[in-house]
Design a protein around this nucleic acid. Structure first.
Lengths: 159, 159
DNA sequence: ACACGCTTCATACTTTCGGATGATTTACAA
DNA sequence: TTGTAAATCATCCGAAAGTATGAAGCGTGT
């Protein structure tokens, strides 16, 4: 792979060198004549336009890649324990030292409630809910409610 | 078709004419100086190389053909999708009209990322992430990211 | 009685989210 | 050609969330 690329680069460099030599020669030849500058310039222009086209084609062609992806998906169908029979992992809860109020708040957060809604639901003040969430986040070692939900589900604390 | 092509050609011709005028001017200006020829030539070369590349790109782009391939996949009993072999519910996604970007953002939200983190992750601006989330919430008919995660999981859109 | 943890609530401040709206570009379809 | 959808980015503003800190009441166990 690498070797091919290096060789191609060398080829390009050689072609460019040849081109420059040709130019040098043209310059030397044509400057001897009077009023030949326009022809010279035109030659240059055409030459380099061609070079540009050639370059572009090479570059775009080299970049044309066809990718065929085959994805095989195998699935098992395990016996499914529905969410109705969810039992929280008491071990994890004890290990983290989560209080019952904090668990309630975590559940409400997971359901998508705002702090104010949680306050109304549990008959608390907004500030109290905030302290609960703050302690909850500290114990779960997270910084946002979305992370708390993710971690809670992962640890089996909430369904 | 033909008409478009002709007009494009006219545009190219105009551009070329402008280019030639520019050259004429450069020639007039620079030939007043000594030893400016080399610089002039180099300019010409670069200019026309660029022109060539541009031309080639335009010409090849106009010829770009899009091939659409339809792949039919048969799925086996997707009753229960464990987190390891999760496959999103395409039916639900299609029904809600969720775009790929919106799905990416939803996944990132579910992992607990802030909008800024999502922006960094997907190489977007914060504002773009916000518009994606806004549209996502609208389509999911929710008002907060926690609700979006909850609904996304419930509908089988995210694991 | 007293320490300890849980719960409750408050103030003040910063950060993150979310809503509304508009601009621009690109791709694709009618 | 025109229209539409997706994706990108922007500003402004208000709401929600989160941080820091202090404080008070209430059971429980020693």
């Amino acid at each position: 792979m690498k070797r091919v690329f290096v060789r191609r680069m060398i080829g390009y460099a050689a072609a460019l060198a040849a081109l420059l030599l040709l130019l040098q020669w043209m310059q030397y030849r044509l400057l001897l004549l009077d009023h030949a500058t326009e022809i010279y310039i035109t030659g240059i222009a055409l030459l380099f336009t061609a070079l540009g086209i050639w370059l572009a084609k090479k570059l775009t062609k080299a970049r044309t890649v066809v990718v065929t992806e085959t994805v095989v998906v195998e699935k098992e169908v395990p016996v499914y324990t529905s969410s109705a029979t969810f039992t929280p992992d008491r071990e994890a809860i004890g290990r983290l030292g989560l209080s019952s109020r904090e668990l309630e708040v975590l559940g409400a957060i997971a359901s998508g409630a705002t702090n104010q809604e949680i306050a109304d639901l549990l008959f608390l003040s907004l500030n109290t809910v905030k302290t609960h969430t703050a302690r909850l986040f500290e114990k779960l070692d997270v910084r946002r409610r979305t992370q708390a939900v993710e971690k809670g589900k992962r640890l089996g604390i909430i369904p």
